[in-house]
Design a protein around this nucleic acid. Structure first.
Length: 155
DNA sequence: GCCAACGTTGGC
DNA sequence: GCCAACGTTGGC
């Protein structure tokens, strides 16, 4: 099965690419949107994802991570102390997370640059009002973004 | 901080 | 099942 590609958003105030680099491997908790969750469930070990900073100055792609563990129930949904605790269904897991490993960090490639690049017009993150925090990325788009970012990672 | 674009909830 | 109200995301 060929490797697939994704984009994962995180607010740097909550969890940044620098945190990712420091931690090396981390579980991607707190996804509370069904479409995003379903995308995570489709992830396979070895897939690559663009690490995207949202609500940042500027927002944009800042690095690459690799999926190292496929979807399993997000422990945060059972944790009363977590802000991701699921009050509605604490006994019936609805939410999943995956484990990701830091691969590369680069200079932020701003959303404005992605929007200005015509060949990326179909990419989910540049669509108006896109709120999807975990989205698939086509191989050509993934390659293009890496190239624009001057990344060392080879798809 | 504002607000557009969604997604979810809940009354009916 | 409809849809208004509400909550959240995220660019600017």
């Amino acid at each position: 099965m060929a490797r697939r590609y994704w984009l994962m958003k995180s607010e740097p105030d909550v969890y940044s690419i620098d945190d990712m680099e420091r931690d090396g491997t981390e579980f991607w908790e707190g996804v509370r949107n069904y479409q995003a969750r379903n995308n995570m469930r489709a992830m396979k070990k070895g897939d690559y994802a663009l690490f995207y900073h949202s609500n940042a100055k500027p927002s944009g792609v800042v690095g690459v991570v690799e999926i190292v563990k496929e979807a399993y129930p997000d422990p945060a949904q059972f944790d009363k102390k977590s802000k991701y605790f699921d009050k509605k269904q604490p006994d019936a897991p609805r939410w999943d997370c995956v484990d990701v490993r830091f691969v590369e960090k680069f200079e932020v490639l701003p959303l404005a640059d992605l929007k200005a690049e015509k060949s990326l017009a179909e990419m989910a993150v540049v669509q108006k009002g896109s709120r999807l925090s975990v989205a698939p990325v086509s191989k050509p788009h993934f390659r293009k973004v890496l190239k624009m970012a001057g990344a060392a990672t080879k798809p």
